[in-house]
Nucleic acid binder design. Sequence first.
DNA 1: CTGAAAGCGCTAACAT
DNA 2: ATGTTAGCGCTTTCAG
Lengths: 337, 337
Amino acid sequence: MGVTIHDVAKAAGTSVSTVSKVINGYYSISDETAARVRQVMKDLNYTPSTSAQNFAKGTTRCVVMLADLSPGTAFRNPHLFEIVSGLEESLRARGYRLILRGADTTTAYAAAEEIISRRSADAIAVHVSVMTHPLSALLTNPRFPHIVLGMPNFETQVCWIDNNNVYSGTVAASYLLSMGFRRIAFVGGQYYDLGSAHRLQGLRQGLHVAGVTLEEQYIWLGESTREDGYRMTKQLLGERSLPEAVVCANNYIALGCVAAIQEQGLNIPRDIGVLAFDDYPFSQFTEPKLTVVNIDVRDLGNQAGRFLTDIIRHPNKQVQTYVTTSILMERQSIFRR
Amino acid sequence: MGVTIHDVAKAAGTSVSTVSKVINGYYSISDETAARVRQVMKDLNYTPSTSAQNFAKGTTRCVVMLADLSPGTAFRNPHLFEIVSGLEESLRARGYRLILRGADTTTAYAAAEEIISRRSADAIAVHVSVMTHPLSALLTNPRFPHIVLGMPNFETQVCWIDNNNVYSGTVAASYLLSMGFRRIAFVGGQYYDLGSAHRLQGLRQGLHVAGVTLEEQYIWLGESTREDGYRMTKQLLGERSLPEAVVCANNYIALGCVAAIQEQGLNIPRDIGVLAFDDYPFSQFTEPKLTVVNIDVRDLGNQAGRFLTDIIRHPNKQVQTYVTTSILMERQSIFRR
DNA sequence: CTGAAAGCGCTAACAT
DNA sequence: ATGTTAGCGCTTTCAG
């Protein structure tokens, strides 16, 4: 079939090992031999076989990512794919390929086990949504290079990386304070929705250090849906005194929140400001467009790729870290008071 | 390191080829030997190395998908990832792994060339957005197993698969006709936006066979954005006689369309019906929720995977096909007249 | 600086 | 039914 390293060696009048050495570059080969070999490779249109190289070197140069890829995920959770894209980009820059593999909590363990035992990848990336306790044990004992995207909601020795939502919350707080807001409300997900909970925590903290209190009556937690955002905001607006601004834990809630406020005949941002988290395209589908604290999730994927290659090199390396590039995107839903 | 086929052979008191045969299963091995070998494999916790197997067999069991994965793609184009998910699912069911690789029109050629020359995948899937003429030549001459997701907008011998948007257009037509509509408008993308153009064509055709004409004055083409949808609809509403329904080529346009109609003080669906294509989550963010002709893009990915494995087996197979599972999702933006 | 040769772990004729 | 053996295409140690 194709031309092999032997053909090159023969044509260049050298041994295959010499050719291999010029391919890999980290052996001493005289410049002239190297040049000749390179020329022959070009003439013969030779490219080393990836499988053969990897097989001989005992590596795969692949990392597989386990994630929920069930129908509709791309629509419901674009974040996931933005992370995937960032991961792919980062891995590719480092010479690795990203294999995407769908799984759920019931199948992820077997998938990982197969990958590990068949040595079909150099590392595994697991999206936190398919993470389980057994899987965590599989990854850490004995250790196999891995990273979990998102902080697991249980104590574990796995490597993970996540956005620092607490920090993002403080960013929201600083911004609101700087814009002259004091009486602030929060509409978010349930306490077990860690992302929302952390954002709330950061917001509260950020306000607190400035001597401002986030009052309990202004905190509403529910489902992360447009419907529940609407419902909660309605109730919030029923309070005796209106907040000056409401912070929405995510875009879905924000959509409902805006609808509720406007239905009440209130003007955003004149009567009440709205600040949301994340910059889904639909944060721009409201009128006015939402000012948001955006989280650069692609960067999360990027960082994960970087850590992963580190971990492949140093399997004992333990990474449990937060990375966040939160960017405030000022649009029209908050005006200075 | 790991236990190899030799260890198994020794422990089972057989030759490696016997072990190999029971692994692969398509050679005659006595039941009792097979059982013994299998037992030893289990005892030794042996799993064949994927790389070694593939290398020996001269295959990779991988297909790489080339697509635009630039920042924000997941938000702007969730369709793409739904296709990816479908493709992955389908390939996995057939024993292949999906490697996702970012590219653009300037890098896709080199990426494909590398894959082909290094034989690092058994096939390539290319999203039409990164397709170019040279790439098409590379794939077809000599033929390398491939499939393009989406119909290229130039004459080519590549294998491709796409949704039948013309058909979807006729689905829209039939529905509107059955609901008693006659005077219908279309707000869509430019003529070179093939998806939109085909939907328009199907709509026109579908109406035509029922003796209904889609009048030119009711056809507005522009950018596929909320803004342009708004602008076009505004103009459309300026016509001397209002259409009974407007069909929007996609969700973005629909968002603007709904806003324009409502701003005009018209009620949807009482005064005017709105029918859109695609079921992005934000087709439900309008009030009322949009009735849409949804396209099952995941199924497109699924079919692509099926064809791809066929093509790998029969490299000369030529596939240029439309598949469509369009489903009408009735919500609140169309009422029977 | 170069080459010979022994793998890497498994498959697949071919022989028995 | 089972074993022998020659690869698959490249890397890497060890001599020279």
